[in-house]
Amino acid sequence: MPQTPTFWQIATDRSVTMRALRIALIVGTVIALINHGDRMMLGGMDAIAWLKCALTFLVPYSVSTYSSVMAVRDRLQSLEDA
């Protein structure tokens, strides 16, 4: 019986990371514009605001990665049970 991949192995798989990056770019941009768009347009962004804006992209990346890992694990488990 093959060994089930670890969370980290699945999370760093190219298909998982590429999907998470695409989602993070789309959702992160929307969230960043909602939270910081007015300051961006007015030129009122300081270093802390830009850092917070950049960190905004980590939330959808993390959620997407976690969701993908759980889906892959569930799929592998159902294949093992069959």
Rank of each mutant, 00 (worst) to 15 (best):
1 M>C: 00
1 M>V: 10
2 P>T: 03
2 P>I: 05
3 Q>D: 05
5 P>C: 00
5 P>I: 02
5 P>W: 00
6 T>V: 11
6 T>N: 00
7 F>L: 05
7 F>K: 03
8 W>R: 04
8 W>L: 08
8 W>T: 12
9 Q>P: 11
9 Q>E: 15
10 I>G: 01
10 I>A: 03
11 A>R: 03
12 T>K: 01
12 T>D: 00
13 D>M: 14
15 S>H: 11
15 S>A: 12
16 V>D: 00
16 V>W: 03
18 M>H: 10
18 M>P: 01
18 M>V: 09
19 R>M: 11
19 R>I: 10
19 R>C: 09
20 A>D: 04
20 A>N: 00
21 L>Y: 15
21 L>W: 14
21 L>I: 15
22 R>F: 15
24 A>T: 04
25 L>M: 10
26 I>S: 07
26 I>R: 05
27 V>I: 14
28 G>R: 02
28 G>L: 00
29 T>E: 01
29 T>D: 02
30 V>D: 01
30 V>S: 01
30 V>G: 06
30 V>M: 00
31 I>R: 08
32 A>W: 03
32 A>Y: 02
32 A>I: 07
32 A>L: 01
33 L>R: 13
35 N>E: 02
35 N>M: 08
35 N>D: 07
36 H>M: 03
37 G>K: 09
38 D>C: 12
38 D>N: 13
38 D>W: 14
38 D>E: 09
38 D>T: 15
38 D>K: 09
40 M>Q: 09
40 M>C: 05
41 M>C: 08
42 L>G: 05
42 L>Q: 14
43 G>L: 02
43 G>T: 11
44 G>V: 09
45 M>I: 10
45 M>D: 03
46 D>C: 06
46 D>P: 11
47 A>L: 13
47 A>P: 13
47 A>Q: 08
47 A>T: 15
47 A>D: 13
48 I>N: 14
48 I>E: 13
49 A>N: 06
49 A>Y: 06
49 A>W: 05
51 L>N: 12
51 L>R: 12
52 K>W: 06
52 K>L: 12
53 C>Q: 12
53 C>Y: 15
54 A>G: 13
54 A>L: 13
54 A>H: 09
56 T>H: 02
56 T>L: 02
57 F>C: 03
57 F>S: 07
57 F>V: 14
57 F>Q: 02
57 F>M: 07
59 V>C: 03
60 P>R: 02
60 P>E: 00
60 P>D: 00
60 P>W: 02
60 P>T: 04
60 P>N: 04
61 Y>G: 06
62 S>F: 07
62 S>L: 05
62 S>R: 05
63 V>H: 04
63 V>G: 04
63 V>W: 04
64 S>L: 03
64 S>D: 09
65 T>I: 04
66 Y>E: 01
66 Y>K: 05
66 Y>I: 08
66 Y>P: 08
68 S>Q: 07
68 S>Y: 03
68 S>H: 04
69 V>T: 08
69 V>W: 04
69 V>A: 02
70 M>E: 15
71 A>Y: 08
71 A>G: 07
71 A>E: 12
72 V>L: 06
72 V>R: 07
72 V>H: 01
73 R>T: 05
74 D>G: 07
74 D>V: 11
74 D>S: 09
75 R>V: 12
75 R>S: 13
75 R>A: 10
77 Q>E: 11
77 Q>A: 11
77 Q>H: 13
77 Q>L: 05
77 Q>G: 11
78 S>N: 12
78 S>K: 15
80 E>I: 09
81 D>I: 14
81 D>S: 10
82 A>E: 11
